[in-house]
Design a protein around this nucleic acid. Structure first.
Lengths: 332, 332
DNA sequence: CATTTTGGTGGAAGCGCTCTCACGATCACA
DNA sequence: TGTGATCGTGAGAGCGCTTCCACCAAAATG
């Protein structure tokens, strides 16, 4: 591998000038810049990232941290979309993304060590759970970070973007109420995640406002199989429900299968609404009425929050909340 | 961030001794080792990876390169499983994995630059396509690498593991022949991938040996939707088929949906076999008879091939081929 | 014309680490 | 007791890069 020294020698300039020419090129004559560019080309020179980041204290790498099992990461289109957008936006700034999938436990310790170790300049965290305490850890480390989805603990210490899940769940539940449902159940997300908590809270708030009972609730885990299992329990314990708000489309897809097997027509016998609208909602039978989760916008905004920290300046945590948007299809 | 110097000073030893104590600790007295360990603990010291790899010329990082669109990477359980195993095995050696998803074009250029740039010590490549020419590029760069799935070009230059797709496809097609099918079609994988080519070749070889026609073939793309589309074409052009070998279970799942809609009973009207056996095969209706794709073994072996290169020694390309294993269910 | 400012440049320090090498102390063996 | 071998150690070089600083020439200013 050629070094900067060789490039400089070939270009007939000093190492300092060669370095300046390669990085931005301010305070370099056009002649020198050209000579360096030619030498770089001729030698196939690529700067040694280790040497560079030893002095700049930058690695030009951002971690995307997902505290989940890899099965779920890969099964849920949410992560694919998020990773896609994050990678895309950061690529424009020539920042590499490294994906860190780690469940609480040993893996998480490894991940934390990695983040502390100076391997990355910052982190985007997706799918935060209460007891991984990533917000606290990252704040303690002092690593620039942005969360996609409000962390349930330590939210006041970090930058984050969040959809207004409470409002979204309330509005979509109101669709059920307006169409005449009187016995409305819910399959929630995990209660150790803000999305799980908030959507359940929104559901309850809508029912309370309408003076309806809010006791038909089963906790799900945001997976399709989990939705299936939860729906079975719900149907067994509350056979009279005529409306169902499911906290994610993926779980709703599972629930719809259960309803079909149970011979309940959707939406006639029981109206169903989901949450997320990431593509699955269009493909279920019947297509799901749901709430759009603005993943792309959230991811983009999170990256912006992160870059703001990287570019110096901002240290006071900022948050950006996105308003919900209903998507009406035929399931309710 | 504390440096090695501070650790050494606190422990009352030289920087050299501290370094030795931290890395392995051979040729260090027990007393010194303990003093260093305490100092590390007290200071919360973590070695600076840039400084370290500047001198060791190692980054302790391995790239997993996937030349595919991110949608497919996330939709296909094949990648999830592969990534899982690769990460797991490399973690035992304290090697980090960075996932590089890049389609041919600009992204691929970025990826290649990244691989050349000394960011990683080696690469595992999954899902190689003919014209991404990764095998040639990696061989040219001289980066230690191992392919999961034989590359269609440049295979002689690189290490790889591969299932015996020809034998697998032949055997599973024979199941169709043995149960009496006489008009057997296939939905192939992409013809720019060895898995696509080989499985089609195996199918043809079985038909040839039985003296059956092998003209009912449509190319698929290893996605569920692609399987659906391909099956529709196949049914239109060859309505008389009574057997179908699909080159992946995911595509077979799509095909089964089409067959159901068309009112063809499986396996009575048309027997279907798939390929991969990664979980989907059990969940289709009816469950798929298929060939097991030993992803775990292949991934583990690929890592082993990579580590052999990293540990010095081996430079002459080696390959490991896995024998197929039939899994009989009810679709044929 | 004397002076300050500017632009382009190279020398050299130093980022934090590993590792070679030389050196003294300790040990085993004759 | 003498002679190697072995062990633990620290001084110091150097990995490849950026960047501070001093310098000089040319341009702009009084």
């Amino acid at each position: 591998m050629p070094t900067l020294d060789e490039v400089a020698r070939l270009a007939g300039v000093s190492r300092a000038t060669a370095s300046r020419a390669i990085n931005g090129g301010s305070r370099v004559s056009a002649k020198a810049a050209e000579a360096v560019a030619e030498a770089v080309q001729a030698l196939g020179y690529l700067p040694n990232p280790a040497a560079r980041s030893l002095v700049t204290r930058r690695t030009e790498t951002i971690a995307m941290v997902v505290p989940e099992s890899d099965e779920r990461v890969f099964a849920d289109p949410f992560f694919a979309r998020t990773l896609h957008v994050v990678t895309q936006v950061l690529a424009q700034r020539d920042l590499q993304v490294v994906l860190l999938i780690a469940q609480p436990g040993d893996e998480m310790q490894r991940t934390l060590r990695y983040l502390r170790g100076g391997h990355v300049d910052g982190a985007i965290v997706v799918s935060h759970h209460r007891n991984d305490a990533l917000a606290d850890h990252l704040a303690a480390i002092g690593l620039p970070a942005a969360f996609i989805g409000r962390p349930l603990t330590g939210a006041e210490k970090v930058f984050y973007t969040d959809p207004d899940n409470i409002a979204g769940a309330r509005e979509v539940t109101n669709i059920l109420i307006e169409r005449g449902c009187r016995r409305i159940g819910t399959i929630t997300g995990p209660v150790d995640m803000s999305a799980g908590m908030d959507r359940a809270a929104g559901w309850r708030s809508a029912l309370d406002a309408a003076g309806l009972a809010s006791d038909a609730v089963v906790e799900g885990d945001f997976t399709e199989d989990g939705g299936e299992a939860a729906c079975e329990i719900l149907l067994r314990d509350h056979p009279d429900i005529d409306g169902l708000m499911v906290a994610s489309d993926l779980m709703a897809a599972g629930a719809l299968r259960v309803l079909e097997r149970a011979g309940r027509r959707v939406p006639d016998d029981i109206a169903v609404v989901g949450y997320d609208d990431l593509g699955i909602a269009e493909r279920t039978t019947p297509p799901l009425t749901t709430v759009k989760n603005p993943i792309g916008d959230m991811a983009r905004e999170a990256v912006r929050l992160l870059l703001a920290q990287l570019d110096g300046g901002t240290t006071i945590p900022r948050r950006v909340v996105f308003a919900p948007e209903l998507v009406r299809r035929t399931s309710a």
